[in-house]
């Protein structure tokens, strides 16, 4: 089977008064129908990687790559107009914070229906049914009531589930989840991730899960890329993250406090060691 997504030598550059700043520096990977995690700290370029797949990096930012194909389609040469049938319908993205990503003046039902109707024509009754079924599948107990609510009337966890419903209703082939749970409580995090996980498995989609949380990524993905200053420093299977070799990955793992913490001081990353070669 062909890979879903192929990326070779992806670079994202922003001009600054002191010359160009490369925030993603020569990233390459291929993705099948699997769950890939991208981890790294703020500024490591992980979100920019996700955005460049959807061509959402705005000028003056520049995206270049030797190859950027999705399901055989060359994304690099596609115009904005040609991207529209891909965005949402075939590749969709769950953003970090439901508070800022949902439209505050549309009801939840209308917003989810809009995601569907942008890409296909359907009779109103069927749209309604699909919205309600989708809300049910993200474990919202009374979909009819929730569909009539506005975003400010629901909690953060429910807002994030609504967003997932919206992103999955056009049945995309690839879901990019950019820090989908970092605005949520630990107890709600697990619920939301379980929902994503179940839907991804059931529909056989590809998932790119972008997060700064190593533990979370290792429990919800098959494969992990660790990024630092725009480059992949380590690639491994999720189960083998704890045996990571690169000092940066090991440093990140060691700096997380544990529930049965006995260390009096947490180890801190020595950034000077590999910041500039």
């Amino acid at each position: 089977m062909n890979p879903l997504l192929e990326i070779e030598n992806l670079r994202v550059t922003f001009p600054t008064p002191r010359g160009d700043l490369e925030v993603v520096r020569g990233l390459s990977f291929t993705l099948g129908r699997e769950r890939l995690g991208i981890v790294g700290e703020s500024g490591s370029g992980k979100s920019m990687t996700g955005r460049s797949i959807l061509k959402l990096v705005r000028a003056p930012g520049r995206v270049t790559a030797d190859k950027l194909t999705f399901d055989g389609i060359d994304l690099l040469t596609r115009s904005e107009r040609q991207m529209r049938p891909i965005r949402g319908a075939r590749i969709s993205m769950v953003m970090q914070d439901p508070k800022f990503s949902l439209n505050p003046v549309m009801t939840i039902g209308e917003q989810i229906a809009e995601a569907l109707l942008t890409h296909q024509r359907l009779p109103r009754r069927e749209v309604n049914n699909r919205v309600l079924t989708m809300l049910e599948s993200v474990r919202i107990a009374d979909p009819e009531r929730v569909a009539k609510l506005y975003p400010h009337e629901v909690s953060g966890g429910m807002g994030q589930r609504v967003m997932i419903a919206m992103m999955l209703i056009p049945e995309p082939d690839l879901l990019i989840a950019d820090e989908p749970t970092s605005a949520l409580d630990v107890s709600v995090q697990a619920q939301v991730l379980d929902i994503i996980d179940e839907l991804v498995k059931r529909k056989g989609m590809g998932l790119i899960f972008i997060s700064h949380d190593l533990n979370l990524v290792s429990s919800y993905c098959d494969r992990i890329l660790v990024m630092n200053t725009g480059e992949v420093v380590e690639e491994c299977k999720a189960g083998e993250l704890m045996n990571a070799k690169h000092p940066y990955t090991r440093g990140l793992i060691a700096s997380i406090p544990r529930l049965d913490e006995t260390r009096t001081e947490l180890p801190v990353l020595d950034r000077s060691a590999w910041a500039k070669k």
Partner: peptide, 14 residues
């Protein structure tokens, strides 16, 4: 904060 920065701040507070 990121986990690595979190570690620095936690050490500082301690």
């Amino acid at each position: 904060l990121d986990v690595s920065v979190q570690a620095e701040i936690l050490n500082l507070l301690k």
